[in-house]
Simulated assay, not measured.
Amino acid sequence: MRDLDKALADIITIRSQIAAGTAFRGYGPAAIAATGGVALMTAILQYLWLDDPTGHPLTFLFGWAVAAALSALMIWIEMQARSRRHHSGLADAMIHQALEQFLPSGIAGVLLAVVLGKFAPEALWMLPGLWQVLVSLGVFASVRSLPRTVAFAGGWYFAAGFVVLVLASQNHALSPWTMGLPFVIGQWLMAAILYFASGETDAED
């Protein structure tokens, strides 16, 4: 029985090592581009219907939380289908690896919003920029299993996050555009990179 357990553990280890050296093809350009559309629609709706985002920060942030949840669901559904199609028996290991790379920055974004909302609501104006920086870290963490050129998208989010922080620091205001436009551009850039890049030749071996 002990030998069987050891053999199963060895198989899992081998599968994980193979997954780590394989380009992940679970992220689909269509879903990524659609999340950019979600960000654009959210920004437009908030611009039209939310007169004072700074005066209603929880409403503002709740709208973006819903947009983020919808975007994550879209990416997850397509990731499941594409991984089964492109990675077959390695699909579960590849998805697990992708989550390991991006999930820490996502969890940090959620906890940051909760902590600021509860203990420092006067600092909520920083969240849009901080979220963009965290997304950049998630993208950079994923570079080793994606086309290397996704680093350009990570660079965009990194630069945009700090620019948004500098702009918002002048009046501590929340704006649907400083939240939305960086994500629209970043997600569409990511979708274009995934569409045109060849995972087999552009990702690390």
Rank of each mutant, 00 (worst) to 15 (best):
L134R: 00
G89N: 15
V163C: 08
M41A: 15
F158H: 05
A123L: 14
A93K: 06
G117M: 07
G89E: 14
E100M: 13
D205A: 14
S145A: 01
Q97E: 15
T22A: 09
M1C: 08
P128K: 12
N171R: 15
V110M: 00
P128V: 08
L137W: 02
L90R: 08
V139A: 04
A168L: 07
H87T: 10
L58C: 00
L134H: 03
H56F: 10
H86K: 13
E100F: 08
A34R: 02
Y27I: 05
E78Q: 13
H87I: 08
W188T: 03
T54H: 07
D5S: 10
R15F: 04
I18T: 10
D205M: 09
E100G: 14
A123R: 12
V133N: 02
L103N: 08
G199I: 05
A123F: 14
T149K: 10
A160Q: 07
M79C: 08
H87S: 11
A113E: 02
L103Y: 12
A113H: 03
D5C: 01
R84E: 14
F119V: 09
R15N: 15
A123T: 12
P104R: 00
F60T: 02
R82A: 13
L146A: 06
A81M: 12
A197E: 13
T54W: 11
I14V: 11
H87M: 10
F183D: 01
T178N: 11
G89F: 10
T149N: 08
A23S: 11
H96W: 06
G199F: 15
D3P: 07
A160T: 03
G161D: 04
R82Q: 12
L165A: 09
L165Y: 09
V66S: 06
V166M: 10
V38I: 14
I32R: 01
T42G: 04
A30K: 08
T149R: 11
K118L: 15
T178V: 14
A30G: 07
L70K: 09
L137S: 08
L48G: 01
T22I: 09
G36Q: 04
L70N: 05
P104S: 09
L146K: 00
P29G: 03
L124M: 15
W156T: 01
F60M: 10
F24T: 00
P176M: 02
L45Y: 11
A39R: 02
V135M: 13
A68V: 11
Q46E: 15
A43E: 02
T54C: 06
Q132C: 08
I77L: 13
T201H: 13
P176E: 04
N171I: 08
A192W: 14
T149Q: 12
T201N: 11
A173W: 07
V66E: 06
A67P: 12
M1D: 11
A68N: 09
W131E: 00
G155A: 06
F140G: 01
